[in-house]
Design a protein around this nucleic acid. Structure first.
Length: 867
RNA sequence: GGAUCGUUGGCUCAGCGGUAGAGCACCACAUUGACAUUGUGGGGGUCACUGGUUCGAUCCCAGUACGGUCCA
């Protein structure tokens, strides 16, 4: 018997005890710091910057886990790996938070004034911003903290000024009076994507415009805006209205005469086929009004309160005014029809959910056409790949039809627009370090947050300076993010990156993942009450368990469901690894010394090394393809099934025997464990580091070498051999189970035919695993598995009924299988057209099942006919 | 309304032209010195429907139904 060794691992795995110290160790050692002067090839990921106001939610946990897997793998593969962390200043969100605090003291930002308010926001950031950064440490993110960036940092602000000026100088930024999305609560313009559409219950009324002379019925969901009408529009080919085109009609309530115009935009099928044209308060109407030179009176103020309409409705909120206007029209007998509720899509502010008000105002825009064209082409001609590819139509669909981008925001927190106005409306744009002429006044607006985050992949690397980081790490290797911000962020980085970096796209690959949903696949939301807290999960099950669960669910571009028990399952997996490692170490598993020559090894050792090589090879290739779920699945089954359930069990006899065979097993087991820990490390960094260091005595797995695929230690025949052993074991266990023999009970048994099956060497392993001892007496039962017969001496009576049931079931299976094979072979078409290999396979199946049936039938007949 | 994805065991998802897989859940048995956060054995699916292509379809094609997502 070999000696059991002392093991420096706690008897039970406790993630909480190891994780924080390990992260500290990694930071202290500087493993995550990237070196721009290194000669290694670069691998770069920039983190999608979380909002400075944010806390780590489950979506971040997924996003970060995937990025960390790639970064850690590449680091082990010998790349100069840089994962760059940072945060976004999140204009509206952050301003809202601070304004709320002020409101609690009865103050508004105007009480403080711009400068003081911005100071206050910085204070808030210093005190309570960025709590997500500490949470990232819990998760194990191997980011380079020395390069942490913030979109409002000096360097990044310089990038913003630089790009603004360049775009302006090339005519790609302009100022214009347009209809924009306006949030009456945030009091700022919003870009298209900051507006979320949802089906709301509104109303749909048909109103008779005109007098006795000429009248027309218009349909609208927004009666309150009628005081701002400049015309009524109909389709030019609409026979009902053709004769009215060009005439004027009376606008009720304000008693103004407005023209009836013809425009293709009007859908004759919709409503009455006649619509009111309110240029200042509707984007479609704005287009028509522009085309026809129609007046666009503005009849609401920035709070969406009626103003300057010259009616009694002035001073009313828009929704109140809607009711009042309709009521008034009803009194006047002008309501022809009404539908209530009328469900239609209404835009809401993505920040505060207030109903967005289209508003005519002067704003700054980016002319996107040339930028979007370049961004589309980069993907079209393959310079940038979108993974999974199925997602690219969405990208094209959007970027090829993009509207000009409204970038001015009426906020105080953000990059102030670097435009200065002279006394006679002269316009000067100042780049970094430039001063406007005396007396010029800066535009009071700030830039859309996405304007600065669009520069993220290069502004964080030092652009516009020609920095060492920029040279080494740009373009970034892969962008990992949820498909939900493909438009918000990814498209903007593509546009600005290609523009700023002379046509070099900011990343080579865009790897998209999905959203985390609840256990039933439903979207998580506060209102549904089905949100989860990743921190709580890490507390309960450990970070590795959370990471493994998320990675295991991550199929490219697809959403994933998540339930707490599944994280528990991943924790169990970690525990399994812990215990397996303890067992291995007790038995002297080692990485010391050369691995014995592969050809000199026994079948089981060859088998586990072959399986290891297959697993390493496939996991490597899957991770390179962003197939995280599949890679994790392979790791899980190799570790649990192949290694723990079979190799360790089959090796116990060898360890027990001691001597040379134990030494060989110990070395092979050491090799398998070593390599397994390496391929698992990117997914479960904490436990693998803890186990591997304890086991090898080395310093760290973080920078250890990634296993080589296709090691050459591979023998296909060992797979078939162990499959035979497994089949034998399973059948014996099944027999024992059916006979009601306790797992722990030793049974006397004799193998017949192991020689011919070339399994004689494994008899002791088989006996160990199946708990069989030498049989001295006569046999009372027997089973046949392939060419091998096992005889048992059951001390008690054999349960003949159970045995008959088992055989009957086997017979039924064999007969069914034989039948399907026979049907195929009797089919002339099949015989004539199916490929040779397939026909042979089916023939073999027929032969096999026929033999099985004979054998089982004989066994059944041999059973004593009791009762 | 347009686009797009999906519909596989109780739940969540893989598979995608040659006898249906996983995790969890379920049933039975078991505390054998790595592990009850466990082990062993087991049950459970006409792969939404209807047509078509094929020797053969869960897989390819067309249509239908239902569901999701994005855009309007």
């Amino acid at each position: 018997m070999s000696e059991k060794k002392e093991v420096p691992l706690a008897a039970a795995f406790s993630p909480a005890d190891i994780e924080a110290p390990l992260y500290q160790k990694w930071i202290d050692a500087g493993y995550f710091k990237a070196d721009a002067s290194s000669t290694k090839p670069p691998f770069t990921i920039v983190i999608p910057p979380p909002n400075v106001t944010g806390v780590l939610h489950i979506g971040h946990a997924l996003d970060h886990t995937l990025q960390d897997i790639l970064t850690r793998m590449k680091r082990m593969k010998g790349f100069e790996a840089l994962w760059l962390p940072g945060m976004d200043h999140a204009g509206i969100a952050t301003q809202n938070v601070v304004e709320k605090q002020l409101a609690a003291q009865g103050l508004s930002r105007h009480d403080l004034g711009r400068e003081k308010f911005v100071e206050k926001v910085w204070e808030w950031k210093a005190e309570s911003g960025g709590s997500i950064l500490d949470q990232m440490k819990r998760l194990g993110d191997s980011v380079d903290w020395s390069r942490e960036a913030f979109t409002m940092d000096e360097g990044l602000s310089k990038a913003v000024l630089t790009i603004f000026k360049r775009l302006y100088d090339e005519g790609l930024i302009y100022r214009a009076e347009r209809i924009i999305n306006w949030c009456p609560r945030c009091l700022t313009a919003l870009s298209d994507i900051e507006v979320e559409h949802s089906d709301d219950a509104g109303e749909f009324v048909q109103v008779r415009y005109g007098d006795d002379e000429l009248s027309i019925v218009v349909a609208t969901t927004r009666a309150e805006t009628m005081m701002g009408d400049g015309a009524v529009a109909v389709h030019p080919e609409d026979e009902r209205y053709k004769h009215m085109i060009g005439k004027k009609v009376l606008l009720p309530l304000v008693n103004r005469m407005i023209p009836i115009i013809a425009d293709e935009l009007v859908d004759p099928e919709f409503g009455t086929g006649a619509v009111k044209v309110t240029g200042a308060h509707d984007p479609n109407d704005f287009e028509m009004a522009m085309r026809h030179g129609i007046d666009m009176p503005i009849i609401m103020n920035e709070h969406a309160v009626m103003a300057n309409s010259g009616t009694r409705f002035d001073g009313m909120d828009r929704f109140e005014a809607r009711k009042e206007v309709v009521e008034e029209l009803r009194k006047l007998g002008r309501i022809v029809a009404e539908k209530r509720p009328y469900v239609h899509a209404v835009g809401h502010c993505s920040r505060c959910d207030t109903t967005v008000e289209p508003r005519l105002s002067k704003q700054w825009f980016v002319k996107v056409a040339p930028l979007a064209k370049a961004a589309g082409d980069a993907v079209r001609d393959g310079r940038v790949k979108i993974e999974p590819e199925e997602m690219s139509p969405r990208y094209f669909d959007w970027i090829d039809n993009m509207h000009d981008w409204c970038i001015s925001r009426q906020l105080w927190w953000g990059h102030r627009i670097p435009v200065y106005y002279g006394p006679n409306d002269e316009v000067v744009v100042c780049g970094p370090g430039e001063e406007p002429p005396a007396g010029y006044v800066q535009d009071s607006d700030v830039l859309d947050t996405w304007f600065s985050s669009g520069l993220w992949p290069f502004s964080t690397l030092g652009w516009p300076d020609d920095s060492a980081d920029l040279k080494k790490f740009y373009p970034t290797s892969v962008l990992v993010t949820g498909y939900d911000i493909l438009f918000f962020w990814v498209a903007r980085m593509m546009m600005l990156g290609l523009f700023a970096m002379d046509g070099i796209a900011p990343f080579k690959t865009i790897a998209l993942h999905g959203l985390v949903r609840d256990r039933f696949g439903k979207k998580m939301s506060k209102s549904r009450g089905n949100t989860v807290d990743p921190i709580e999960f890490m507390d309960k099950y450990g970070s590795d368990a959370l990471r493994f669960t998320l990675a295991r669910g991550a199929n490219p571009g697809a959403d994933q469901a998540l339930a707490e028990e599944w994280i528990g399952g991943a924790r169990n997996f970690a525990t399994k690894l812990w215990n397996a490692s303890r067992f291995a170490m007790m038995n002297g598993a080692t990485t010391e010394g050369a691995l014995p020559a592969f050809d000199s090894l026994g079948g089981i050792d060859k088998w586990i090394l072959t399986r290891l090589d297959q697993t390493v090879t496939e996991v490597d290739s899957l991770l390179e393809k962003f197939e995280f779920a599949k890679a994790c699945e392979l790791i899980y089954h190799f570790a649990w099934d192949d290694l723990c359930d079979w190799y360790l069990e089959l090796s116990k006899a060898s360890f027990a025997a001691g001597g040379e065979s134990a030494a060989t097993s110990a070395r092979v087991l050491g090799e398998v464990l070593d390599q397994l820990m390496r391929i698992m490390h990117p997914v479960m960094p904490f436990i693998t580091e803890e186990l591997w260091c304890a086991f090898t005595g080395k310093e760290t797995l973080v920078t250890a070498e990634w296993p080589k695929p296709n090691s050459g230690n591979s023998d296909e025949s060992s797979i078939a051999l162990v499959a035979q052993v497994q089949n034998l074991v399973t059948e014996i266990r099944r027999f024992r189970n059916d006979q009601g023999i306790k797992t722990s009970a030793k049974v006397a048994a004799k193998f017949i035919g192991l020689d011919t099956a070339a399994l004689a060497t494994y008899e002791s392993a088989l006996r160990q695993v199946c708990r069989l001892e030498e049989m001295t007496g006569g046999a009372s039962a027997r089973i046949e598995v392939g060419n091998v017969t096992i005889e048992f001496d059951l001390t008690g009576a054999v349960d003949v009924d159970a045995e008959r049931a088992r055989l009957t079931k086997d017979l039924a299976t064999a007969e069914k299988d034989r039948q399907t094979a026979k049907v195929k072979l009797d089919n002339e078409g099949f015989m004539a057209k199916a490929p040779m290999e397939v026909v042979q396979e089916i023939r073999a199946r027929l032969t096999e099942t026929t033999a099985d049936i004979e054998r089982i039938t004989a066994a059944l007949a041999a059973l004593p006919a009791n009762k």
